[in-house]
């Protein structure tokens, strides 16, 4: 089913596309001629080691940094060079690394902040209900300070917060980062749940095994260049992948 979906996607227009994107921090080139495309309903993962340019890819998409050349196209329009606010407003939302909830605010306020750019109250309420249905635990803790939740619960709130924006693309920055193995399993369960909602997800991960086990396709990035792009199944079988990222010799 996954493969079939991936194949279908090839014929449609990508919802998010990076075209020959170069990003520099000062004189240092961090992304070099990166090409990526994410199609509606897909789940794509971006794999790579430390300092390979994974996070910068997300920052470039979200407008924290402006690419020095190339363009980011979202929903048919160039978004590179636009402000983060504008990009979020158009339908990109992110689950940041380490969750980064607003710890002193209640869970409810965190969720509402996710929908900050939206003005359609009825639809926001619908999405709130959807989030609470998806993560019943979150519903039990609405009045609690977000900072007092456990790691796994916080991850659910972070995902819920991102979903509240009703995004066309949901970005996730290393959702398994800094979590105990048992929580990593939990997080991937959460991502599967979100995937089952039919969302388009672009997830950056170091845990290649886990990520590929739930994604449709994957990109592998090394020192700022995309070195591999294939379906998740093929990547899992790829000898080079097995050696470099999947911990097998």
């Amino acid at each position: 089913m996954m493969a079939g979906k991936g194949a279908d996607a090839e014929e449609r227009k990508p919802v998010l596309e990076l075209r020959q994107v170069n990003t520099h921090y000062g004189l240092v080139a961090v992304l070099r001629d990166v090409d990526m495309a994410i199609y509606p309903g897909e789940m794509v993962c971006l794999l790579g080691g430390n300092a390979s340019g994974k996070s910068t890819t997300l920052k470039t998409i979200l407008g924290y940094v402006t690419p020095s050349s190339g363009e980011v196209v979202f929903d048919g329009e160039v978004i590179s060079g636009k402000s983060t606010t504008e990009i979020v407003r158009r339908g990109v939302s992110m689950v940041p690394e380490n969750r980064r909830l607003f710890g002193d605010m209640t869970v409810e306020e965190n969720l509402l902040l996710g929908a900050y750019t939206r003005t359609d109250k009825a639809a926001v309420e619908q999405d709130r209900q959807m989030v609470l249905d998806t993560f019943p635990v979150v519903g039990e803790r609405l009045k609690q300070k977000a900072g007092t939740l456990s790691g796994g619960q916080q991850q659910m709130v972070a995902m819920g917060r991102a979903l509240m924006a009703n995004p066309k693309v949901l970005l996730m920055d290393e959702p398994s980062m800094g979590l105990a193995p048992i929580l990593v399993d939990q997080v991937f369960e959460i991502i599967k749940t979100i995937r089952s909602l039919g969302r388009t997800v672009f997830v950056v991960e170091q845990n290649a095994n886990m990520a590929l086990s739930i994604a449709d396709r994957g990109y592998v990035i090394q020192t700022g260049r995309v070195v591999l792009a294939d379906t998740a199944a093929n990547l899992l079988a790829n000898p080079m992948m097995r050696e470099a990222y999947l911990g097998e010799l």
Binding site: T85, M105, R161, A165
Partner: peptide, 23 residues
């Protein structure tokens, strides 16, 4: 108000507030 909530978010984590679409 909405403004107060935005300030609150900004005070706690500016970058994430940005990612929420708060200018």
């Amino acid at each position: 108000s909405r403004v107060g909530r935005a300030w609150n978010a900004m005070r706690e984590d500016e970058q994430v507030a940005d990612a929420m679409g708060i200018s």
